[in-house]
Write a protein that binds this DNA or RNA. Structure first.
Ligand SMILES: Nc1ncnc2c1ncn2[C@H]1C[C@H](O)[C@@H](COP(=O)(O)OP(=O)(O)OP(=O)(O)O)O1
Ligand SMILES: [Mg+2]
Length: 430
DNA sequence: GTCACCTCGCA
RNA sequence: GGAUGCGAGGUGAC
């Protein structure tokens, strides 16, 4: 019995490096790194350079990995703006290290993922944001009216190395692999040519980092489950549902304490709150009367983007413009239209069509819009004539009428403009 | 059903 | 400008 379990452990956990270095695993890892088409790390080596480099050096690197002597290169620090105005510190490993981390990810994920909480939805195979949101919805429908939103401050940047290594050590018995991961955590960061030693955090940009972050918060999930809370977590974004405000306040303080003391992470006090579910924002959604709504901020961003896509550039072929508008609408709709609000779709469709007509109206006012140019761009004849007529002194109303006629909803539908209404129907009765 | 490329959304 | 996972649409090859 003991022998059996030891043999089991040996094959499953102690020989992970071999699995890691197996040709099939490496092949998949490289495919993925290549498909992401990322840029070079600190060594300047691009995706295209890598195959020739690997042909010459991989055997050597492979031996180093197997023997536990491989040392990762430092990561390149790049600051990019966040939507909220702050900056996000990316840590970009070299292509070689992304390849190796990806290979590690593929070995570790099947080991850890099956044991994660079913209410953790971020960075996991077969899990998506819609599932997380609908899970919250069922909790709301069953009478929970109070939501606790907790946000972690600079989540990836503050992961505690010792604690993470401890959690990894509980499952990974392969000392060589543990050492390699430890070296990845301690890989130097290069910013403005200076090397700094990280004391905490996983790089935002490392293929392994998302999995490590889930391993880090797994204990939180399990604790919430054990306490019988209805919750959903997506990366560091999570919402817990309770019945009363009093219970909410109590849970917020106790969970905050857990996060600070046990997980050694920092709760973003400003973004954390407890209140009615109708005030909650989770993954771009909100809730109202037990229904999923698109949050105002998400709608605002949508309208801004549609304005951007319609405002200028109508000087070029209209079919091109409709195509780019279409792919945006499809992508956006397929994510957000799980919100069960049919009327909103109809309204948005109408809003989009009005915008398109309005942009034409503005543009054809300009003298350079000659009728035959309009025709060349694929503008319907009736519209072109009406614009020509306007410049000859016919009333504006004639132009408006011409545009409305020429760019009718029917015409735009024929031109292939997708409607959110159709996407909604496909999602809700498909 | 698999894979490749392009696009959109969320953390 | 880095990454993961998932979902969606399109083009293409088996
Ligand atoms: N574009 C991205 N690239 C890499 N990792 C990301 C990206 N967006 C989000 N993440 C990961 C790392 C973040 O720590 C984690 C949570 O994201 P987010 O809450 O937006 O920022 P944050 O937790 O780092 O800062 P903040 O203090 O503003 O909450 O998800
Ligand atoms: Mg955060």
């Amino acid at each position: 019995m003991m022998l059996l379990s030891m043999a089991y452990q040996l094959t499953l956990h102690e020989n992970l490096i071999e699995k890691l270095l197996s040709p099939a695993n490496l092949d998949n890892a490289w495919k993925r790194v290549k498909a992401n088409k990322g840029s070079a790390g600190i060594d300047g080596m691009t995706i295209d350079d890598f195959p020739t480099f690997a042909n010459a050096n991989w055997e050597h690197i492979k031996t180093q990995i197997a023997q536990g002597t491989y040392r990762p290169s430092p990561v390149l620090r790049v600051n990019i703006p966040k939507p909220d105005g702050g900056t996000r510190k990316l840590g970009i490993p070299t292509v070689l290290d992304r390849f190796i981390q990806q290979a590690i990810h593929q070995v570790l994920n099947p080991l850890f993922d099956p044991h994660f909480s079913p209410y953790s939805y971020g960075f996991r195979p077969n899990c998506n944001a819609a599932q997380a949101v609908t899970h919250l919805q069922t909790g709301i429908k069953s009478g929970r009216k109070i939501a606790i939103d907790i946000d972690l401050s600079k989540f990836f940047d503050r992961v505690n190395h010792d604690l993470l290594m401890h959690k990894l050590g509980l499952k990974i018995k392969d000392k060589v692999l543990m050492k390699l991961i430890g070296r990845y955590l301690r890989a130097r960061i290069v910013e403005h040519g200076k090397r700094v030693k990280p004391t905490q955090g996983v790089p935002q940009g490392g293929p392994l980092s998302p999995l490590l972050s889930n391993i880090m918060l797994d204990e939180l999930d399990k604790t919430l489950e054990k306490r019988g809370h209805h919750f959903a977590r997506y990366a560091d974004d999570f919402t817990i549902l309770v019945k009363t405000k009093r219970a909410g306040e109590r849970v917020l303080t106790s969970i905050s304490l857990f996060i600070k003391q046990i997980l050694k992470l920092v709760v973003n006090e400003k973004k954390s709150r407890v209140g009615a579910v109708k005030e909650t924002r989770f993954l771009g959604f909100g809730f109202k009367y037990g229904r999923i709504k698109i949050h105002d901020n998400s709608l605002q961003r949508f309208k801004y983007r549609v304005r951007e896509l319609t405002n200028r550039n109508w000087g070029i072929a209209m079919s091109k413009q409709i195509a780019s508008l279409n792919r945006y609408l499809r992508g956006w709709g397929n994510y957000f239209l799980i919100a069960n609000d049919y009327q909103l779709c109809v309204d948005l469709d109408q809003w989009i069509r009005r915008r398109i007509r309005m942009c034409f109206w503005r543009q054809w006012r300009k003298p350079r819009s000659k009728v035959k140019n309009l025709l060349k761009r694929g503008v319907p004849l009736a519209l072109a004539i009406s614009c020509g007529a306007t410049r000859k002194g016919v009333w504006r109303s004639a132009k408006t009428k011409g545009i409305n006629q020429a760019l009718s909803n029917e015409y735009l539908a024929n031109a292939g403009l997708v409607s959110l209404r159709d996407i909604w129907i496909k999602i809700h009765h498909g």
